[in-house]
């Protein structure tokens, strides 16, 4: 608590009568890169807007760098925000977009020029000063929006779905760019995403949210390997999740003998964790597709659909044939109810 740079305590956020986030506690260390991860409607964007000051909390406190900013208006908070749509000013040149905040602070012209130029250089946009946002590509617009926030030297930089509007190659570039900027400036960053792969690749710590509450929080590797709940496991790619009843796995459609003891009420396997070709169970192949390094099977069995990945060097089992499989204890992830 004492070393938290950003601290949200008992934060309750609502839109009119609708409570989007009830009673949220979250501490963020200085220089940390946090991902607020969750499906749409989980309260991640609402939380980010509250940190920015665009939304006044119904209850609770927001402390940034030792200062209670709960009632501080957005324009005095010293926070940067890169919008999902970038929200660049179309009537201004790229340079003037970056200089916008500095001009508001009435800095001397020489300082504005130097800092805006340095800001554009940081994101690799030197030479684009005279362009209008409409004359720039999506990736360039995003970097411009990033530069516009960074030149203000904010205490915290918030990013709303920073990679979602970019194509696959630009995503990778931008991801590296964000990591580099974060490493160079040491700035505290909070970004919002619904894409678990983005969160895993970029964040120091993932805060997984559901219905306005924190479902689980931890380093990417921990969330990936050890999700605690059904929701977290589902979000982290455990596509086979079943309840345990006595000696059996159960689902809505049927049951299957587990074959080994467990104390967990729920067990989950990734498609990679399901062994195919041999094992005590058997089911019918209803879908099969080549995915480069492996083959993806969908197997119909009494539990319903099992998703399994088979090594590419094994012989393909044709559609409609039966295939043997195992749900091994070694790859089973026990979950809380």
């Amino acid at each position: 608590m004492s070393d938290a740079f950003v601290s949200l305590a008992g934060l309750t956020l609502s839109y009119g009568e609708t409570v989007a986030v009830p009673d949220l506690d979250l501490d963020i260390a200085e220089g940390e890169l946090i991902a607020l991860l969750g499906p749409s409607g989980c309260g991640k964007t609402t939380t980010m807007r509250a940190i920015a000051g665009l939304l006044t909390p119904a209850r609770g406190r927001i402390v940034i760098d030792g200062e209670d900013v709960t009632r501080t208006p957005a324009n005095k908070r010293g926070i940067g925000l890169v919008f999902q749509s970038y929200a660049l000013f179309p009537h201004l040149s790229a340079f003037e977009n970056v200089a916008f905040g500095l001009r508001l602070r009435k800095r001397p012209e020489a300082e504005i020029r130097a800092r805006a130029e340095a800001g554009m250089a940081t994101v690799g946009l030197t030479g684009f000063e005279g362009r209008r946002p409409a004359e720039m590509s999506g990736g360039q617009q995003q970097r411009l929006a990033l530069a516009r926030s960074l030149v203000m030297e904010p205490k915290v930089l918030l990013l709303d779905e920073p990679l979602s509007n970019l194509d696959a190659r630009l995503r990778l570039d931008m991801r590296n760019e964000l990591q580099r900027v974060q490493k160079d400036t040491g700035i505290t960053m909070v970004f919002v995403t619904h894409d678990q792969s983005e969160a895993l690749a970029l964040a120091d710590r993932i805060v997984l949210m559901k219905d306005g509450r924190i479902e689980q929080s931890g380093p990417p590797a921990e969330l990936y390997a050890e999700p605690a709940t059904r929701f977290a496991a589902d979000f982290m790619g455990f596509e086979n999740i079943f309840g345990v009843e006595g000696p059996d796995l159960v689902s809505e459609t049927g049951r299957l003998p587990l074959g080994y003891p467990t104390d967990s009420p729920i067990l989950a396997w990734r498609p990679d964790g399901v062994a195919v070709g041999a094992g005590p169970h058997s089911g019918r192949v209803t879908a099969s597709s080549f995915a480069g390094g492996h083959r993806e099977y969908v197997i119909d069995c009494p539990l319903g659909r099992i998703k399994a990945n088979a090594p590419i060097d094994t012989a393909e089992v044709p559609l409609g044939r039966d295939i043997a499989f195992d749900l091994p204890q070694a790859t089973a992830r026990p979950l809380a109810a």
């Binding site: 920015a52 000051g53 324009n75 908070r77 940067g80 925000l81 749509s85 916008f100």
Partner: peptide, 13 residues
């Protein structure tokens, strides 16, 4: 877009 105004406010307007 309304978020353009929010961007301006965050930058100090």
């Amino acid at each position: 877009r309304a978020d353009m105004e929010e961007a301006a406010v965050i930058l100090g307007c």
